[in-house]
Amino acid sequence: METPDYARFVQECIAADTVDDHILSEDQFYGVYLSWCALQTQTPGPCESFWAAMSEQGIHERRANDHRRIRPGLRMTGPAALDYILASQPSLV
């Protein structure tokens, strides 16, 4: 397995959305990344490297009122998003 290309991950799996209610939590964002790595047969990079790469890609966290780390205005898309959703919501299957 090779180390993932973070820019490619963003291009294939993350979409900007102007709808205010689209927010990716830290867990969702990292979860779709892990799904993408599995589908690409790539070894996920360390968390610290992933978040540093997301910052370099212009994706910055904000703190919600309940102190969760979120990325507003973003949504997940593509096959990795479907894989993540089905894995995290087994009742949908």
Rank of each mutant, 00 (worst) to 15 (best):
P4K: 01
P4W: 01
P4C: 07
Y6V: 13
A7Q: 13
R8N: 07
R8T: 07
R8V: 01
R8I: 03
V10E: 07
V10L: 06
Q11D: 13
Q11K: 12
E12Y: 03
C13N: 05
I14E: 06
A16W: 11
D17W: 07
V19T: 14
D20R: 14
D20P: 12
D20S: 15
D21N: 15
D21T: 15
H22Q: 15
H22N: 15
I23N: 11
E26C: 07
E26G: 00
E26M: 12
Q28E: 14
F29Y: 07
F29Q: 00
F29C: 10
Y30Q: 12
G31E: 04
G31V: 05
V32H: 03
V32W: 06
Y33W: 04
Y33S: 01
Y33G: 00
L34S: 02
L34Y: 06
S35C: 06
S35L: 02
C37V: 04
C37M: 03
A38T: 06
L39S: 08
Q42W: 05
T43Y: 00
P44T: 02
G45W: 02
P46V: 05
C47Q: 10
C47V: 07
C47K: 12
E48K: 07
S49F: 02
S49H: 03
F50T: 03
F50K: 04
F50I: 10
W51L: 00
A53F: 01
M54K: 01
M54T: 04
S55M: 00
S55Y: 04
S55K: 08
E56D: 11
E56T: 06
E56M: 08
Q57I: 01
Q57W: 00
G58A: 03
G58T: 03
G58Y: 07
H60G: 06
H60Q: 05
E61K: 11
R63K: 15
R63F: 13
A64G: 12
N65A: 15
N65M: 12
N65H: 10
D66F: 11
R69L: 14
I70P: 09
I70W: 06
P72A: 10
G73S: 11
L74T: 00
R75N: 05
M76W: 11
T77N: 00
T77C: 02
P79G: 06
A80S: 10
A80G: 05
L82N: 10
L82G: 04
L82T: 14
I85S: 01
L86K: 13
P90W: 06
P90E: 09
S91Q: 14
L92E: 08
L92F: 14
V93I: 13
V93S: 14
V93G: 14
